[in-house]
Design a protein around this nucleic acid. Structure first.
Lengths: 236, 236
DNA sequence: ACTCAAGAAAGTGTATGCACTTTTATTGCC
DNA sequence: GGCAATAAAAGTGCATACACTTTCTTGAGT
């Protein structure tokens, strides 16, 4: 109708942008448990007002990645050891379901895509630490997405991020959380169909990740949010 | 410091109050899938501004009970049939975990509390329809709470509410979703310990609820929100 | 009657302002 | 110097204002 675009500025859903950026920063361990997330700093970084930043924090708090305390600055959630264990138990239950639905149904294209993801993981292992962890998570998320079940996808994605955060809290710095070979074996088992018991393999894999990682505890505080988030301000 | 209490009005966390009220209204089928939830009406009903109402809707949307569409009025979520099925699959997986952790560990006091809940269910069956459904859900939630695992509690609670909403969308009006006798058998099986295979009993129970209910579809639109919410405005 | 195009009404998206709380810095006292 | 009292700064909680979008209403043209 109108010829000029005027100032229709707000359509890019900055809420989702902030959430995505923060999730990624958390999973890549740029943001660590306990790190402070002031609303105005967040808003400033993403060119939005406190209103949006606040909504993003509420959203992430619902996902268990951020802790919101009344009248206090929000912080990245710091799951307890018991929380971490419980998160992995739930994750196992959910991902078993993914594998069950997927067993014997993967197309060649899907197998190819998954293998490429694992390949990327392998590459990233020698470079940035954060990227490898993110790609390992992405592998599990993509697997869930292939079920085409929106609710399952949502829960698996969320629990994967929470698991990533838990590892961030307890894993030792350079532990190789997700062995590439395990992911490859998983792909083959799922492709093979129910007979190969891919479900059990998935459980073993996740159990291995958990026990490999949940050994000693690290801690960090008081770093500069603006600086940490700089690489995440662009598109997700 | 100051002697007068002044206007320190906002400490009651009205956000939580609204969320609780809406969850309950949804589970009791006072609010049905598709029902509109305008921010200002909601705020007015609970004596808060749109800001709070909006935050509540965002929270409930994260829990899958409310659907938020850009520039459009929020509505109670309307899960698809496939969604409903997936929700029950996830619910089964999670509640199996609850039962596994609980088997053989219930104290007499806990058994007593659960039996009282089932008794209340039984009573409610003859009166208001909504109350019976709510109490049935509460039984499962209390069970989860007895594990003492915060994360598991959170997910089970959420999935129970989503399951309730799904039933609301697809169950025929006066179907007896949760048979009281099944709940009693469940208590006994869990109390008995692992040998009795309470896990499988829970799965059977939930499967029965799902298949009993997911048969035909109902639909409703355009009712008066202020009126529906009147009984939920007080404390939860 | 039937369409459909204004215009009005209802509702959302978001920035901003102000009251209040928490945290941090400062200053005076010992 | 150590340390509490206190003032300044930083930050949250929430209502409100205004631009924009969607939805409803109405009435002219056919």
């Amino acid at each position: 109708m109108s010829e000029q675009k005027k100032q229709q500025r707000g359509q890019a859903d900055r809420l989702a942008v902030i959430c995505t950026a923060l999730r990624r920063a958390i999973i890549e361990r740029a943001l660590l448990p306990g790190d402070r997330l002031p609303e105005d700093t967040l808003g400033e970084r993403f060119g939005a007002s406190r209103t949006i930043a606040r909504a993003a924090l509420l959203q992430l708090s619902a996902e268990g990645l951020v802790e919101l305390r009344r009248n206090r600055i929000a912080v990245v959630a710091a799951p307890s050891f018991q929380d971490a264990r419980d998160i992995f138990d739930i994750r196992i239950a959910l991902e078993r379901q993914v594998v069950r639905h997927l067993a014997g149904t993967l197309t060649e294209a899907q197998v190819q895509e998954l293998r490429q993801l694992v390949e990327a993981e392998h590459e990233a292992r020698h470079g940035q630490d954060g990227a490898a962890i993110r790609l390992a998570t992405e592998f599990h998320v993509r697997l869930a997405e292939m079920t085409g079940k929106p609710i399952l996808i949502r829960y698996v994605t969320e629990i994967c991020y929470r698991a990533g955060l838990s590892l961030s809290a307890f894993a030792r710095p350079h532990s190789s959380e997700c062995a590439v070979s395990e992911h490859l074996a998983l792909i083959d088992a799922i492709r093979g169909g129910p007979a190969l018991n891919a479900e059990d393999l998935m459980e073993e894999h996740l159990e291995a990740v958990a026990s490999r990682a949940l050994l000693h505890k690290t801690g960090t505080r008081g770093r500069d949010l603006m600086e940490i988030l700089a690489p995440y301000s662009g598109d997700g």
